[in-house]
Amino acid sequence: MSIQHFRVALIPFFAAFCLPVFAHPETLVKVKDAEDQLGARVGYIELDLNSGKILESFRPEERFPMMSTFKVLLCGAVLSRVDAGQEQLGRRIHYSQNDLVEYSPVTEKHLTDGMTVRELCSAAITMSDNTAANLLLTTIGGPKELTAFLHNMGDHVTRLDRWEPELNEAIPNDERDTTMPAAMATTLRKLLTGELLTLASRQQLIDWMEADKVAGPLLRSALPAGWFIADKSGAGERGSRGIIAALGPDGKPSRIVVIYTTGSQATMDERNRQIAEIGASLIKHW
């Protein structure tokens, strides 16, 4: 067993022997301040990774656009098919120029040779490549099948209805392509620590998230040296922004954090800054 596999296998073990965790309302004060600064709703939840206990939450059962955070769930569904012998990570998928959609920095470079399922998941999570996500959605049967996968996990809230990039439209009061912070946090925890996926697939999923290259201005910008984070960000229309993450000190994750916002007129930089400040408060009061 590799060191990384050992780390993920012992996530519940280490967490069980940690000192009790206590909620700190100071972080919620910052979440509410972010709402004021952005002029928009902000949803927040913080779960203990081992027990699933909610440590703090704000608007945990209000719907927010998922945006690209759905790509972690998508690759979880792909990995479940791999575990069941219905898919192979090494299978190569070929596609054409007509398949390319807006923001496809990886797939646009491989029109000639195609990409493997493993490479597509890596591109979808680490670079948020939209064509990679659409190609992977095709392998599982489309958005409705991802929703069905989530329902089978016990998540009857999260739903995907459309493809990239239309799913980022974020129309107010439109339930399409949305989740709730509580539902997303619980589902992410199941994917990373539950028995739904094999140990190898859980490790692969967290490795992809740990290698995320496009979430630097968010929670990662607030992390002290030595902290662990595996995350996936999302951005959408109407001032929408979000991030889902597993993080913790001492090089291992111990909490799940989900943050979503929508309806702001603020710039992307300002949305990023507010999420980073929430992260800084979380870490300060850990």
Rank of each mutant, 00 (worst) to 15 (best):
G263W: 10
V31P: 01
D250S: 02
Y95P: 10
D231E: 14
R273G: 09
K252G: 09
Y260W: 04
A215N: 02
D231H: 10
G248D: 04
D48H: 05
S80G: 14
R176F: 14
T126C: 06
P172K: 13
E26T: 13
E61A: 03
S240L: 13
G39M: 04
H94N: 03
V214Y: 06
K30V: 09
T187F: 15
D212Y: 02
K109V: 04
N50Q: 05
D129L: 00
L111V: 05
E56I: 05
M127C: 07
G279C: 08
A185Q: 01
W163M: 13
R59N: 12
Y260E: 01
D129H: 00
R255K: 03
V31K: 01
S233Q: 04
G90M: 14
E108S: 15
T147G: 07
G216S: 10
Y260A: 08
L167M: 07
R59L: 11
Q265P: 08
L247N: 01
A40M: 03
F58L: 11
E62I: 02
A266P: 04
Q97A: 07
Y44C: 06
I54L: 09
L150R: 01
L150G: 08
A222M: 12
D155T: 02
L197V: 02
A280R: 14
I283R: 03
M184L: 02
F70W: 03
L136N: 01
L120I: 07
A235K: 10
S264E: 07
A170S: 02
D174L: 14
L135G: 07
N168R: 11
K30F: 11
A230M: 05
D33I: 03
R63D: 09
E277H: 06
L28I: 06
G43Y: 01
E102S: 06
H110D: 13
S51D: 11
S68K: 00
P181I: 03
I283H: 05
L219K: 11
I283N: 01
D231I: 14
K190Q: 15
S57F: 08
R189W: 03
V257M: 10
L199D: 07
L223T: 12
L79N: 11
T139P: 10
M268N: 14
T139F: 05
Q204I: 14
P253R: 10
L49W: 11
K213L: 04
L205S: 03
K32W: 15
A124W: 00
S104W: 01
P165C: 06
R241Q: 11
V117D: 01
I259Q: 01
L47K: 10
Q88R: 13
A222L: 09
A185K: 01
I93N: 15
T261S: 10
M268T: 13
E61M: 09
D113L: 03
R271W: 14
N272K: 13
A183Y: 05
T179H: 00
A170Y: 02
A235D: 15
R241T: 12
I278R: 00
D212H: 10
I45W: 11
E237M: 04
E61H: 07
I125R: 00
R59S: 14
T112M: 13
V29P: 09
W208C: 09
G194W: 12
L49F: 13
W286I: 04
I125Q: 02
E210K: 13
E164R: 00
D177P: 00
H151Y: 12
E195N: 02
G279T: 06
L146P: 01
A170E: 02
E166L: 14
P249E: 06
T178H: 12
T262P: 03
R176T: 08
P143T: 14
E56S: 10
A211P: 13
S68T: 00
V106E: 15
G216I: 03
R59I: 01
E195I: 03
T139Y: 12
E169T: 05
D155L: 01
V42T: 04
I54E: 09
G216Q: 05
S201H: 15
I243G: 01
L79D: 01
G236K: 01
G43V: 01
A183T: 06
L205I: 13
E166K: 12
I278H: 01
T116Y: 12
K32F: 15
L205C: 12
M153E: 03
E145C: 15
A40E: 11
V214A: 08
N50K: 09
E56F: 07
P65H: 11
L205M: 03
R255G: 09
T198F: 04
H285M: 11
P181T: 09
S68F: 00
H156N: 10
L136Y: 00
L219D: 15
I275H: 10
M115V: 06
A182Y: 04
E26R: 09
N134S: 07
L247S: 06
R41H: 11
G154Y: 02
H24K: 07
N173G: 06
T139H: 03
V31Y: 01
